[in-house]
C-alpha cells in the first residue's frame, strides 16, 4: 500500500520526491496554504504544525518520513464561522498585525496549552515537578520558537493567557 499522510483527517499519498519538506507538501502539493514559510530553517516558527499531537517545525522534516502520521494545520483547528478559542482570542486581542506568523503562533499555542495541561516543565518553570503555574513568563518562554516581526507579542501573550485561564477554570 502506498505511503499516506493524514492531514486534518484526510489521507494523502506522500510525494515522490524525497526532498519535499512537510511544509512544501502542505502548501504546494495539497493546497493548504495556511501554514506559512518564513525562514525555512526552523528559526521563526511560521511553519509550526501539530503532528501526532505535538508541535514541530514542518520545514525541518521530510514529508516522506511521515507515512501513517496525523497532521493538524491551522485549517484543521477552526473555520471563519467556527474559530477555535485561540483563533477567537487572537482576534479579540489583536494578536497580530500582518498575520503572516499567526497560523504558526496559533498551532504552537494550541499544542502548548496541552503541554501545560500535561504539566510539562519549561526553562521558565521554577520546579520541574508538580503543576505548572501559568504566567506571562511561562508563555513567553514556551512560545520563543515563534517570532513575530510586527512585534505583536504583548497581545499574543494576552490572547493565550485568556484561553489558558479559561481552560483552568
Amino acid at each position: 500500500m502506498a505511503d499516506t499522510i493524514t492531514v486534518n483527517e484526510t489521507a494523502y499519498p506522500t510525494p515522490d520526491d524525497p526532498r519535499v519538506s512537510l511544509l512544501d507538501f502542505l502548501r504546494q502539493h495539497i493546497g493548504l496554504t495556511g501554514t506559512k514559510k518564513g525562514c525555512d530553517h526552523g528559526q521563526c516558527g511560521a511553519c509550526t504544525v501539530i503532528v501526532n499531537g505535538v508541535r514541530i517545525n514542518s520545514c525541518l522534516t521530510l514529508a516522506a518520513m511521515h507515512d501513517g502520521d496525523s497532521v493538524t494545520t491551522i485549517e484543521g483547528l477552526g473555520t471563519p464561522d467556527e474559530p477555535s478559542a485561540l483563533q477567537r482570542a487572537f482576534l479579540e486581542h489583536d494578536g497580530f498585525q500582518c498575520g503572516y506568523c499567526t497560523p504558526g503562533q496559533i498551532c504552537s499555542a494550541t499544542a502548548m496549552l496541552e503541554e501545560i495541561a500535561a504539566d510539562w516543565p519549561s526553562d521558565a518553570s521554577e520546579n520541574l515537578e508538580g503543576r505548572i503555574a501559568i504566567s506571562g513568563e511561562e508563555i513567553r518562554e514556551r512560545m520563543s520558537g515563534n517570532l513575530c516581526r510586527c512585534g505583536a507579542y504583548a497581545n499574543i501573550v494576552a490572547a493565550i493567557e485568556e484561553v489558558a485561564a479559561g481552560g483552568r477554570s
Partner: peptide, 14 residues
C-alpha cells in the same frame, strides 16, 4: 534543565 534550556519546544519535540 539542560535540555529545556536548549532550542525551542518545536525543535525539542522532533
Amino acid at each position: 534543565r539542560a535540555i529545556l534550556a536548549g532550542a525551542t519546544q518545536q525543535l525539542r519535540n522532533k
